[in-house]
Design a protein around this nucleic acid. Structure first.
Lengths: 252, 252
DNA sequence: CGGTCCATTGAGCTTAGTCAAAGAGCGTGG
DNA sequence: CCACGCTCTTTGACTAAGCTCAATGGACCG
């Protein structure tokens, strides 16, 4: 059902998001830039709902080039939890040669294009002495992923439905902005309320009510798969991130 | 712990848990075993409530040798969420030379002993060609950590209070059992209901009621910082892990 | 034109939170 | 040995956030 390896050597869709992301994290040498650009070769297209990586599979390193995806776990009785979202520039499978099977499935939420990232991992991890920039970038990306995962834990554990929703929108805005996909606080937002509910640990009905409230509060506009953020500052105040500028809470 | 030649008598507190954990993940060469044993040198003791790693700090790699700790985030208004628990054999700070500041604080829940893990990271990541076993073990540990974090997300997002509590107890039992610290389903359990609440995203009062219910159901006995599991199978049925033996839920 | 998917709204219910008070366990100092 | 203070646990009464069930409406599509 997934992944048709693209047969015709089509005009290489843009690696721009990935380049942008990596350049923000580390200074690259010309050779390192070449390694990255070379990734654009082995592309793969996936239809919406395709399983980019099955639960229990030993993942092969790949990187999102366009589209949205998510990692999810489905329980025996049908309950689903979305663990994290993946945007252009994010990796599918861990940022290391993984020895253990994946603990959750990765699914495309829109049509998705990925590239093989084996060469990047090789350069960044195995030949890390020759590619300090790529090595740094990969380690930074791993740290970011871990950070997002921890944010998700805090969202689910200690925030109200309203805060959760706003906080997630803020995270996605920030991540898209960093790769140039959210100019003037407006960006594609292909998540249905159903998906949002499973990401936020809420029911669909309640997500609807919370979104209605946020709209009434004038925080953002959301329809037709697009969102415009109207009151960024107000949203950040409503769902603040502990570690943005904490007053340096000293131990004991 | 049988066949290994272990002639040197214990000079320093036991690295046993770490050794046990690593040996279960990868076959080690004698030299690799030596690298591990050598870690036991640079020990550090921490009192209960000590901050093993502050939020915002660039973490230095260390490994827990004994005691319990947790990663936590505290919000401006005082709400706390515990992200994960750390047991003997677990790492403080990521399993890579981290370039970015830690996104949460690490705090000792009991008196804790740690060792410097710089040498392990050096062997496993930088000189990975010479130490395939350590490299494999470190990558496995990273996968496990990620797995536990995802489990935490699912717990918080899609499980009832009762399920959450049981599932966490099961996770801790499994992890302790793997390092030989839960013989015959009985182990030290130094978590107060307050800590449990912040780990499970519940209120203290509700944790108390849920524990009372579990006790009434005869699932386990819990007092004085120790727990005895009476009905492991029943608990696993109540809070099942999606990926234990799922009927291979095929896509679509 | 009917079907499907998604968003929306209302009514009633359940789970978990809040507030408050009391008990149990433990170490310390008188 | 006991009284005191501290932390942690337990219980009850009430409240509220969020869930379930159910029905409706809009948009798109073959």
């Amino acid at each position: 059902m997934s992944a048709a390896p693209c047969p015709p050597p089509m005009a290489v869709p843009s690696i721009a998001a990935l380049m942008r992301r990596v350049s923000a994290l580390a200074q690259l040498s010309p050779i390192e830039t070449l390694v990255l650009e070379h990734l654009a070769g082995r592309q793969q297209q996936h239809i919406m709902r395709a399983e980019l990586c099955a639960e229990g599979e030993i993942p092969k390193p790949r990187i999102m080039v366009s589209g949205w995806a998510c990692r999810q776990r489905v329980m025996n009785d049908g309950r689903r939890q979305i663990i994290s979202f993946m945007l252009p520039g994010d990796t599918i499978g861990p940022l290391r040669q993984s020895p253990l099977p994946e603990s959750c499935a990765t699914v495309a939420l829109t049509p998705v294009v990925t590239v093989d990232a084996q060469a990047l991992l090789q350069a960044a991890c195995v030949e890390h002495m020759q590619h300090p920039g790529l090595s740094m970038a990969v380690r930074c990306m791993a740290s970011q992923q871990e950070r997002w995962l921890r944010d998700q834990v805090v969202r689910l554990g200690r925030r109200s439905a309203y805060e959760r929703t706003i906080h997630l929108v803020l995270e996605l805005h920030g991540r898209l902005d960093a790769i140039g996909l959210a100019p003037s606080r407006c960006f594609a937002f292909p998540l249905t309320q159903d998906v949002l509910a499973d990401a936020l640990g809420l029911s669909v009905v309640h997500v609807n009510r919370v979104l209605a409230q946020a709209r009434r509060d004038g925080l953002f506009e959301l329809h037709g798969g697009h969102i415009v953020i109207h009151q960024l500052e107000c949203m950040e105040a409503t769902a603040p991130d502990p570690s943005v500028h904490p007053p340096r809470a000293l131990g004991s």
